[in-house]
């Protein structure tokens, strides 16, 4: 039981860091440009499809990951410069509708290009199979790699934002948009850059998760909604909040799905009640956070 619990903790952590890659882009784009981007899930899908295609063509997983970053960033730059930058000054309603329209275009466009059947993308041989952890737990190496990659990206993002000139501009942009452009920073280039960064992270997480799960049309939307829950819990606009929120949501979801049916079987004799509760648990967590801190765990008070 203890070993099983530790394994589930690792699983929750792995889910959390992947959610963080999604949520980081969403929250950055919102923090800096004030844009709600529903099409973020489509960029995740674009990354996964690009990776699967490149892996099939070249056989190289590394190239596939590079492709996921590049394709999602390129798609991000495309929609940012053509469409989304016209929406920064609009209200959230227009943003929601326009990015909802983008989901329709991306989903069916992907199907038109890649066909109606899921694509093949699998773990490269050096990273496949289980390893034995201290304590005798057999755990898939690739999931450990995901945890490591996610934490490395988080660290990189933190360094980028706090230690580089671009990062300071991003921070300043989030704090006061007009001030930054008054200081002579080319704000529209900064916006495109931030959007491309967020898109690339989404694309990378699509490729990594797609490797473990499946690469198919519509894969982005469930993740998108969970990522929304993450940034609401963490505080919209806060990258640290996204990290904390993502790990919290990852652990809650994984442990809830594991423990609640067991608890309910013990109490009522059937797992049903626990399953119903488990499927709603992260939303309940979100509601609880809102009652205590409406601006999210790390958000600035409105």
């Amino acid at each position: 039981m203890t070993l099983l619990l530790i394994e589930q903790l690792l699983n929750g952590l792995q889910l959390g860091v992947m959610l963080f890659l999604m949520a980081a882009g969403l929250t950055l784009v919102f923090g800096v440009m004030g844009l709600i981007n529903l099409a973020h899930g489509s960029l995740y899908m674009v990354g996964a499809f690009a990776a699967a295609w490149v892996a099939a063509q070249t056989g190289s997983y590394l190239l596939a990951l590079v492709a996921s970053l590049a394709a999602a960033a390129a798609a991000g730059v495309l929609i940012e410069t053509l469409i989304l930058r016209r929406l920064y000054a609009r209200d959230h309603l227009d943003q929601v509708l326009a990015t909802f329209a983008l989901i329709l275009i991306f989903s069916e466009g992907t199907r038109a290009v890649f066909g109606s059947f899921p694509l093949y993308l699998t773990i490269p041989p050096p990273l496949s199979g289980p390893v034995t952890l201290p304590g005798g737990i057999e755990y898939p190496l690739f999931r450990l790699v995901l945890i490591g990659a996610g934490l490395a990206v988080a660290l990189g993002l933190w360094l980028l934002i706090t230690r580089t000139r671009v990062g300071i501009r991003i921070q300043a942009g989030a704090a006061d948009r007009e001030m930054v452009s008054a200081l002579g920073v080319d704000i529209s280039r900064l916006y495109t850059l931030v959007f491309a960064l967020g898109a690339a992270l989404a694309g990378l997480s699509g490729a990594l998760v797609g490797t473990l799960q499946s690469v198919e049309v519509g894969m982005g939307e469930p993740v998108l909604i969970t990522a929304f829950v993450v940034i609401v819990i963490g505080g919209i606009g806060s990258v640290q909040g996204a990290l904390v929120g993502a790990i919290l949501v990852g652990l809650t979801q994984t442990l809830g799905a594991f423990l609640l049916p067991l608890a309910s079987t013990r109490l009522t004799g059937a797992p049903d009640a626990g399953q119903v509760l488990a499927s709603m648990l992260i939303y309940i967590l979100m509601a609880l956070v809102l009652i205590v801190r409406p601006q999210g765990l790390m958000g600035r008070p409105a």
């Binding site: 199979g129 057999e138 473990l212």
Partner: peptide, 17 residues
């Protein structure tokens, strides 16, 4: 069925079980 099965089979094969 569908994507659920793809995901499970890949993960199961990788788990060493």
């Amino acid at each position: 069925p569908g994507g659920m099965g793809i995901a499970f089979l890949k993960q199961y094969a990788d788990s060493g079980v």
